[in-house]
Amino acid sequence: MLTVCLRYAVDTMEAEDILQESFVKVYRNLSQFKFEGSFEGWIRRIVVNTALKHCQKKKIRFDEVKPETPQGGSIEPSAYNHLGEQDLMQLIHQLPEGYKLVFNLHVIEGYSHEEIAEMLNIKDSTSRSQLVKARRFLQNEIIKLQKPVAV
């Protein structure tokens, strides 16, 4: 769960705060868990919601960041082999706040654009465009990483 928090937080301290708050909520609302789904999924949902609340406090602007033009074309599949989880986490951290939120919610948590729009109080189209841009941003960063790997 700390990893989930780390994906949304700016730094480890904030992630720990989110985790702490989430688990306190879990303890206090344990009686509300109805054994209808997985317990982990329920906790994960609480953690994500708490993280979103934290992010909303910061008043995130879903700005458009001009993506850098991909250098060197497509990503070679071998580049992915060298990418570890830690590297991916670092890359996600480099994403602008709005991109990061939408990317995490859609790609990793599996929320639809409609759900994300409702959760973040934005339009569906904004969510879609943020996702596309986040993806492009990440791909560019992976290409950048690919070069030293190739050498």
């Binding site: 700390l2 720990e16 702490q20 306190v24 990793i108 599996g110 993806r135 791909q139």
Partner: peptide, 28 residues
């Protein structure tokens, strides 16, 4: 690309340090 990221990060566990659990317990 999405499924690659998801498979890598969905079950990734960085492990929580001990003091985090102590903080949670203390807070409760």
């Amino acid at each position: 690309f999405d499924s690659f990221i998801k498979s890598k990060l969905e079950s990734y566990d960085s492990g929580a340090p001990m003091h985090v659990w102590e903080r949670i317990k203390k807070d409760d």
